[in-house]
């Protein structure tokens, strides 16, 4: 862990584009991520948001927390709305109807709006090559409606629709690998991030915004309410997700893999699982299954990063 990173945060711009007074839960990792993302993007940004926690906490008419132009339409179409914004800005500037200006076009959605109901719109927008940044705030379930499972909920996790019962031990499917699905579209930039590593997150948002064409950043957004942790634990849990290999931080730049927060040795997985209410019921055997998967995933990522590094040489 680079401790200098902890203090470097103080050098970030003070300007907030998501004003205080919004209605997120205490300790919300997602709202922290949204703030960091928009600090990185700056004021010349238009954001299209999916329905979800961030929309509900920030826009109860007649109030708004947004200090940038922001639009919400529906749950599954943030990528399509952003595609329309991008296409229109391009053509209006070309036709001289608006002044030329570099404007970041951003779509934001949760894991439900990305990996489930919004997957088609996202895939379409990536394939068409809109020059935009898509940010998935992944809190690993439908938190806004009361912690129901999504396809991004990890194996074993208890949610209100994958309850840990006596017959079924919570979520019995494996987390859908969104960054890989996006990377398969061969877009210029794909990355994972989490606000527990704020500079890494900001660097990735800046890279994604600068990329010519679609970029995607998948942000693990720790959710104290849904995960069953204390609201002061958010940053720590996010770090443990990375340090145990449960959620590796990496980027795929023009096809080249790079692990951006490397771990010489992964911490024991239990250190991540044990503090969280959603995993409290897991048996040794289920934890062993999870561990196997984490190791496989980490090894595969290391292999790809090594291949990319040797190809670059």
């Amino acid at each position: 862990m680079n401790d200098a990173g902890l203090y470097a945060v103080k050098s970030l711009p003070k300007k907030e584009y998501l004003a205080p007074g919004h209605r997120s839960c205490p300790g919300c990792g997602e709202v922290l991520a949204v703030r960091l993302v928009h600090k990185a993007l700056g004021r010349n940004t238009i954001t299209a948001s999916a329905t979800g926690c961030m929309e509900i906490v920030s826009s109860p008419f007649p109030l708004t927390s947004w200090e940038i132009p922001w639009i919400h339409v529906a749950f599954e179409n943030a990528a399509a709305v952003a595609g329309g914004i991008e296409a229109a800005l391009k053509v209006l500037q070309r036709k001289g109807k608006i002044a030329p200006k570099e404007i970041n076009v951003v779509a934001m959605a949760g894991d439900g709006g990305t990996a489930d109901i919004g997957l088609q719109a996202l895939s379409g927008a990536l394939e068409r090559g809109h020059d935009f940044l898509y940010v998935c705030y992944d809190n690993e379930a439908y938190m806004n409606t009361g912690v129901q499972r999504s396809s991004a909920t990890p194996f074993g996790a208890h949610t209100t629709t994958s309850p840990a019962g006596t017959a079924v031990p919570g979520q019995i499917t494996w987390k859908k690998n969104m960054p890989e699905i996006v990377a398969a579209h061969k877009i210029p930039y794909v990355a994972t991030a989490t606000p527990s590593y704020p500079l890494d997150l900001i660097n990735k948002i800046e890279k994604g915004a600068a990329a010519e064409g679609p970029a995607y950043v998948h942000i693990l957004s720790v959710c104290p309410t849904g995960w069953g942790i204390g609201s002061a634990e958010t940053i720590k849990i996010g770090r443990l997700a990375v340090q145990t290999g449960f959620f590796p931080l990496y980027e795929v730049e023009d096809g080249a893999y790079k692990i951006t927060v490397d771990c010489a040795e992964l911490l024991p997985l239990e250190r991540y699982l044990q503090p969280q209410g959603r995993f409290r019921h897991l048996s040794e055997e289920l934890i062993a299954q999870l561990r196997r998967r984490v190791f496989e995933q980490w090894a595969e990522l290391k292999r790809r990063a090594a291949l990319s590094a040797s190809a670059a040489r």
Binding site: R43, T45, I71
Partner: peptide
């Protein structure tokens, strides 16, 4: 929607 004059569209009621 333009950065020169930020607006919120689609607020919930």
């Amino acid at each position: 929607l333009h950065p020169d004059q930020p607006l919120t569209m689609g607020a919930f009621a």
